[in-house]
């Protein structure tokens, strides 16, 4: 961490730093305003989420009135097993996409800012982002199935998800890589550090938020991806495809969807919370 610390300039005390920022940016009006904006939007995000959790216990989930209360939907959720396989498939797929995003975006992403013609490379990399999901799915379908005659399956869904998630991962890695002072690496090389040491001890700690973000974003984007999957699924069923198909069943799936969302909410909250807690308390100690 020592090199990174030197880089970030930790000679100022913490209180001093804060004051510096407050003077520079957060004149008395700005500071509370900035915090309030965030608070309002977080509240706006959580009104429907909390309401959704509440309504998952309501006998009439779409009515907007949490009365009378019931555990019926959870009973129903656990009594049916049809969603378990799509859910497991989705989790594994998202995990694979997240890991592959990190493995590809880190070496390639950190190499791109050092290239001479970066603009073109970056444009090609980001291009698929600007094509709507269904259209990208249709294009990949035409290519993989109609022209190459490959049998579709989980692998093609994986390809579709990578095409979607990887550019985001790149952006995160590139953004941090460009802000990175390469003289640190040169200095380390002069001091006789190996390529691995230079990466692991200097570059990685600074890029860590980007790397973590790339993996996390890859996971999330894949976990919720529907539009490309519709075209590339073959006969596989991921969780978003499952709920999408159930919409044609002419039966209400809200009870189960609400219940499931509440469960995901309950599971991710402690995991992500702990994750950020560790990330920041560690950074704190580092300081």
């Amino acid at each position: 961490m020592s090199a990174a610390d030197a880089h970030a300039g930790r000679r100022l005390g913490r209180a001093q730093r804060l004051r510096l920022w407050e003077h520079a940016v957060y004149a008395p009006i700005w500071r509370p305003l900035a915090a309030w904006i965030g608070l309002v939007l977080i509240v706006l995000t959580y009104i429907p989420l909390v309401w959704l959790v509440v309504m998952s216990f309501s006998d009439r989930p779409l009515s907007g009135i949490p009365h009378p209360l019931t555990l019926r939907w959870y009973d129903e959720l656990f009594a049916t097993s049809a969603w378990i396989e799509p859910m497991t498939d989705s989790l594994w797929l998202a995990l694979a996409v997240g890991v592959c995003c990190v493995l590809i975006s880190v070496p390639v992403g950190r190499a791109i800012p050092r290239l001479r013609r970066r603009g073109g490379v970056l444009l090609i990399t980001l291009l698929p982002l600007f094509v709507p999901g269904l259209t990208m799915g249709a294009a990949l379908f035409l290519f993989i199935r109609s022209y190459m005659h490959f049998k579709l399956g989980m692998w093609s869904v994986f390809v579709g998800h990578m095409v979607w998630a990887l550019p985001f991962a790149f952006l995160l890695v590139i953004v941090l890589a460009t802000r990175f002072d390469h003289r640190l690496l040169e200095a380390a090389e002069d001091l006789g550090a190996s390529a691995w040491q230079r990466f692991w001890q200097i570059e990685f700690p600074i890029m860590r938020p980007g790397i973590v973000g790339a993996g996390l974003f890859g996971f999330i984007l894949s976990f919720n991806e529907l539009l490309r999957s519709i075209f590339l699924r073959g006969t596989e069923t991921t969780m978003p495809i499952y709920t999408w198909a159930q919409a044609s069943s002419h039966q209400s799936n809200v009870p189960i969807i609400f219940g499931l969302a509440s469960l995901i909410f309950g599971v991710t909250l402690p995991i992500i919370g702990t994750f950020f807690w560790i990330l920041f308390s560690r950074t704190d100690r580092g300081r």
Binding site: T80, T237, I241, W244, A245, Q246, S248, S249
Partner: peptide, 28 residues
């Protein structure tokens, strides 16, 4: 393989009555 409009909430009804096992791949 087909639209979920035809599905039974619980395919085990089908399984018990026919002695077969339904593996249903849903689509819209």
């Amino acid at each position: 393989y087909g639209t979920t409009t035809v599905q039974l909430k619980d395919w085990s009804l089908f399984n018990e009555s026919t002695g077969l096992t339904m593996e249903f791949t849903p689509t819209d």
